[in-house]
């Protein structure tokens, strides 16, 4: 009787240990242990062989950046798409993978991090706590509205700025000093 209790407890502790290990360990994804491929539906699937030698197939994976602004091509987290979104593994350096894989993953990343770059600033008008932007981006011309004064325009690197609009859309100014003096002057309000 006592034996079984102790044994059960031991099992549970083992389980617990395993679960904790699962959470705190870092699994790296490389060309050796992972095969990514395109699905017909425009997603990416993954066949992954873990350290224990077990191979798992994922019909679709989610691709997240750990440092979307400061280091977009390193530490790419590959996650289960649904539920908790548990991490399957981490790609330390995107460029270490085959070109084909890199292309595939970059497609997925561009879906997730849609951020048009502002290439021309036609006008910014400020009125009553909102600023109204009229811009041309690499994805087309558009107009959007930004709430003033609560950090919706912020620096994400040297001379690089990110703008959040009312819809939660993001726009990027890749290099402030690439812009014309007139445009910089308009941005003066925010920077």
């Amino acid at each position: 009787m006592t034996e079984t209790i102790v044994k059960n407890e031991y099992d549970v502790l083992e389980q617990q240990k395993q679960a904790v290990e699962d959470i705190i360990s870092v699994r790296l994804i490389t060309d050796e242990n992972a095969v990514f491929s395109r699905t017909d539906g425009g997603f990416v699937s993954l066949t992954f062989t873990g350290e224990d030698g077990k191979t798992v197939e994922y019909n679709r994976v989610a691709v997240h950046r750990c440092f979307p602004h400061s280091d977009p091509n390193h530490y790419i987290s590959i996650r289960e798409p649904d539920g908790d979104g548990r991490e399957i593994g981490l790609i330390e350096d995107l460029s270490s993978l085959s070109d084909e894989t890199v292309n595939m993953l970059e497609e997925q990343l561009s879906l997730r991090y849609f951020t048009p770059k502002i290439i021309r600033l036609k006008n910014i008008r400020e009125e009553y706590g909102y600023s109204y932007w009229d811009v041309v981006t690499d994805k087309g011309a558009c107009r959007f509205t930004v709430r003033m004064g609560s950090g919706n325009v912020y620096s994400i690197g040297k001379n690089r700025y990110l703008i959040n609009d009312l819809d939660g859309n993001r726009f990027e100014i890749p290099d402030l000093y690439e812009m014309t003096p007139r445009e910089i002057k308009q941005l003066d309000l925010f920077i």
Binding site: T39, D40, G41, F43, N59, P68, F114, D167, N169
Partner: peptide
Amino acid sequence: QVVGGLFVVDIDGVETWLCRFSGAKL
């Protein structure tokens, strides 16, 4: 997605994204 989202449908059983949209259309 981080910005906006994807409209996804299974077509003949294959999970396919049909259309993207920004946060304005969520």
